[in-house]
Write a protein that binds this DNA or RNA. Structure first.
Lengths: 108, 108
DNA sequence: TTGAACCGTAAGACATGACTTACGGTAAGT
DNA sequence: ACTTACCGTAAGTCATGTCTTACGGTTCAA
């Protein structure tokens, strides 16, 4: 809950979201990701740190490289948060619409 | 897409997310929302402006008050973005797991 | 063991963002 | 008409975040 909501802050930055979307296609090393973006490699490394702390990605060493990958667990937590909120909000929305209708033919 | 992704930035701030969650329960005016939060009323007004520009809430005048409400359309766009990404990422993840397995018994 | 490739972190510049108080504007009640 | 209630916006302050360059560490190959 408080875990999945921190993911919003992680995905707020456009560059960091591009990094995340790149990993959505498949695993990649830091240099590979940076080569496809208009920022430096250290910048990508810092973004990956944030994504990792948010539980959205995992990393594993591969020689001198370091391969990053989407973490389905963190992504699922975000989806769960949104689904629950969606259910509650939509219910409240429907109730509000209903209240508006009854108020129309039976004004307070 | 670019519409639903801007919602991440809108929901990144904790205070603004509290405002949004309050509206998830039901419609409310600016003063009502502010009275339940540790920030001033203008601060809430500014947060609502961001949420509105992100397509997450709508507003309607009610006398001197101004009632805000969740916009199911914007919330649905966010959900759609996440669902699509979830599908792609999970597919890539499964393929990666499969690749790891085959690599185990048939090393390159 | 030397060299090259790859990465994370530190330090600092710079922009962005969240908050406050102050002000003006509109709608309802007396 | 005047007051009260409620709201949005402007101006300014202060914290946070993103980027860069510079540096040190680790791994593989020669």
């Amino acid at each position: 809950m408080s875990y999945g909501s921190s993911a919003f802050a992680a995905l707020a930055d456009p560059t960091r979201r591009q990094v995340f979307e790149r990993l959505g296609v498949g695993p990649a090393a830091v240099g590979e990701i940076a080569s496809g973006l208009p920022v430096s490699r250290p910048a990508v490394s810092q973004h990956l740190k944030v994504l990792k702390e948010a539980g959205l990605v995992t990393d594993r060493p591969d020689g001198t490289r370091r391969v990053y990958q989407i973490d389905p667990k963190g992504l699922g937590a975000l989806r769960a948060w949104l689904d629950q909120f969606w259910a509650v909000a939509l219910d409240a929305y429907a109730q509000e619409v209903e209240r508006q209708v009854t108020e129309q033919k039976d004004p307070p």
